[in-house]
């Protein structure tokens, strides 16, 4: 810990010195500035100038300060590009320019802007997708994020989500929640009578048909399925207790 912080200090001093030097040699450009924060070093890149001007100055500064950085222990830096949109190639170029100075390791590029595509993905992964239809035998729908289904899932039909699943209808087919490994995902249904249900790869299989004592669904009131902490298996609980469990999870 202590060692790192001295290196950080050293780099900061060097960077400041370099800037003073730059001021002496020509008009101040300062498109590239380095600041130390609690979390470490951040390289701020001006977001108003042209990209070429930016890389030009970055190249110069890194070349000039190359020696200053020396070959000391690794320094992790964050790069803040403000409101500039960088393509993947440009990001790579910036990282490799910075890492020309051996000890520097870019740990992340921070930006205030994202592409439409990224925005769509983010929305998908955190959002809720709702369907209003019957998922029939042979049909399989899969969504990122949570899934709300206003309708039934019939035997032979499958619904899958990276998040949780809520069926406002009868779940008779297969439901898979947390398919990317989210252990906190749940599967709720107004009428819970699934053939098979899984959360993050933990499975529940319906009791054999002939073992079923009476006609009718597995649960007669709305329930949700979750992975029980203790037994590491699928458990069911009344839907009206869902909020309690959510609260417990948030406390953890």
């Amino acid at each position: 810990m202590w060692k790192v912080s001295t290196t950080v200090e050293k780099v900061m001093i060097m960077a400041q010195l370099a800037e003073v030097k730059a001021m002496n040699t020509g008009p101040a450009k300062n498109l590239v500035t380095i600041k130390g924060t609690k979390e470490g070093l951040t390289v701020f890149l001006n977001d108003q100038c042209s990209y070429d001007a930016l890389t030009e100055e970055l190249k110069e500064k890194v070349a000039r300060d190359h020696q200053a950085f020396g070959n000391g222990p690794e320094v992790e830096v964050k790069v803040d590009v403000g409101y500039r949109f960088l393509t993947k190639e440009q990001e790579h170029q910036i990282i490799s320019l910075l890492e020309e100075a051996d000890p520097i390791k870019v740990k992340e590029i921070q930006t205030e802007v994202i592409s439409r595509e990224e925005a769509r993905k983010e929305r998908e992964e955190t959002g809720i997708t709702s369907y209003s239809q019957i998922i029939r035998s042979g049909q399989d729908i899969r969504v990122k994020g949570d899934l709300y289904l206003l309708g039934d899932v019939n035997p032979g039909g499958t619904i899958q989500a990276t998040g949780s699943i809520f069926v406002l209808g009868t779940l008779k087919g297969t439901a898979r929640a947390g398919i990317d490994g989210d252990l906190r995902a749940v599967v709720g249904a107004s009428v819970m009578d699934p053939h098979q249900l899984s959360i993050a790869g933990t499975y529940f299989h319906a009791p054999e048909r002939h073992e079923k004592k009476e006609k009718g669904p597995l649960y007669k009131e709305p329930v949700f399925a979750y992975i029980s902490e203790r037994e590491k298996e699928i458990a069911f609980e009344k839907t009206r207790l869902l909020y309690q469990m959510k609260r417990d999870i948030e406390k953890d």
């Binding site: 029939r136 035998s137 042979g138 049909q139 019939n154 035997p155 032979g156 039909g157």
Partner: peptide, 16 residues
């Protein structure tokens, strides 16, 4: 019967 209904359901899905 269960299997005929399952297949009918598949067909209904396709017809839709």
């Amino acid at each position: 019967d269960t299997s005929a209904v399952r297949d009918a359901d598949r067909i209904v899905g396709l017809l839709e």
